[in-house]
């Protein structure tokens, strides 16, 4: 009797021991597996983030440097007109000399040319990695540098495009679908004719139609003066969508200025510089929804219609960025997002 009970006792003991131990081991192994991966992630992301920050600062805040190796007293900031000559060492930077955050057009163009020259294509980031010191013995990175319109968000990206529909700046391989470090800067580009999709001084009475692509980078209406203050004056801006096959068409008025009832023109209160980017982009989304719901098809022509009565105006659209300032003044600028993305691989 006593012996039998003892045997049962021992058996139970080992089973409980087993359960207890396995619960402990299970937790222990789980932590063991989980811990290194968490640290490895943090480590790579943190070091990559610093690289993305560095590249963005060198590009947007620094004019770059060049030096003639054969005659070291020849040196300076304007590498864009020297880099292709013999014996020249240079590091690119895109900022205007002494104005951090303001991009020099020549430097931007030559930066693209140099990438093509050393890498063969914009998608090749070998030269960029080399010149910004991203290659080190222990790590290898890839970098993508792109210019986006400010309407873009981190999950919805729209490239800045010039008048021929090409990306203004996209350098480096496509961004992979894995963990990357993304550093975003706002840069000020000069008002360059190729960055302004449409720029027109509109006369007194006009119904002006501009084919455009949405979302827009920027839109600006400048009301300058009137020819007759004793008559109605107004501006109306519409977004118009059409399917060119079925000829179905929908429009919506997204902006109105002035008084269409009275018989005088309040020009002092109307004169001014009006940004319309948000109105047009939000209007487009509404019209698009209306169109697809009404006609069960997609529009293939997008246009902005500006109707002007008795006012002299200037109207400008850009697919590069937000237009800030009167385009004729030299402090005017186009604001875009310069996004530097760096990842390990």
């Amino acid at each position: 009797m006593k012996v039998k009970e003892k045997r049962i006792d021992e058996g139970r003991l080992s089973l409980d021991m087993l359960i207890g131990l396995s619960i402990f081991l299970f937790a222990f192994i789980f932590i063991g597996q989980f811990l290194p991966s968490v640290f490895a992630d943090a480590r790579s992301e943190i070091s990559v983030f610093a690289e993305a920050y560095k590249v963005s600062v060198l590009l947007t805040e620094d004019p770059g440097r060049w030096i003639n190796r054969a005659n070291t007293s020849e040196k300076g900031f304007h590498w864009e007109s020297e880099w292709y000559k013999d014996n020249i060492s240079f590091r690119p930077g895109l900022a205007r000399v002494g104005r951090a955050g303001f991009i020099s057009l020549n430097k931007l163009m030559e930066f693209k040319n140099a990438t093509l020259h050393y890498g063969g294509s914009y998608a090749n980031d070998t030269w960029i990695r080399d010149v910004f010191g991203l290659d080190s013995p222990s790590n290898s990175y890839h970098v993508n540098i792109s210019l986006l319109i400010p309407y873009s968000t981190s999950y919805n990206q729209y490239y800045s495009r010039n008048n021929s529909g090409q990306n203004v700046l996209t350098i480096g391989p496509p961004i992979p679908n894995k963990k990357v470090s993304r550093y975003e800067r706002l840069v000020n580009l000069p008002v360059y004719s190729d960055f302004i999709q449409h720029y027109a001084n509109l006369p007194n009475n006009v119904n002006y139609r501009i084919n455009s692509t949405f979302p827009l980078g920027g839109a600006l209406l400048i009301v300058r003066n009137t020819s007759n203050i004793h008559a109605q004056c107004w501006v109306e801006v519409r977004v118009n969508l059409t399917n060119t096959t079925s000829l179905n068409s929908t429009y919506e008025t997204v902006y109105e200025l002035g008084d269409r009832v009275g018989s005088t023109c309040d020009i002092t209160n109307l004169t001014g510089i009006y940004p319309l980017t948000r109105e047009l982009n939000e209007g487009y989304e509404e019209v698009y929804e209306n169109f697809t719901q009404t006609y069960n098809e997609l529009p293939d022509n997008q246009s902005v219609v500006v109707r002007i009565k008795n006012l002299n105006c200037t109207f400008a659209l850009s697919n590069v960025g937000e237009i800030i300032g009167d385009l004729s003044s030299n402090e005017a600028r186009i604001v875009s997002k310069l996004v530097v993305t760096v990842w390990e691989g």
């Binding site: 440097r65 007293s73 020849e74 040196k75 300076g76 900031f77 304007h78 020297e82």
Partner: peptide, 8 residues
Amino acid sequence: SGGGGGAS
């Protein structure tokens, strides 16, 4: 300051 060199 100090890093410029010539005007070009």
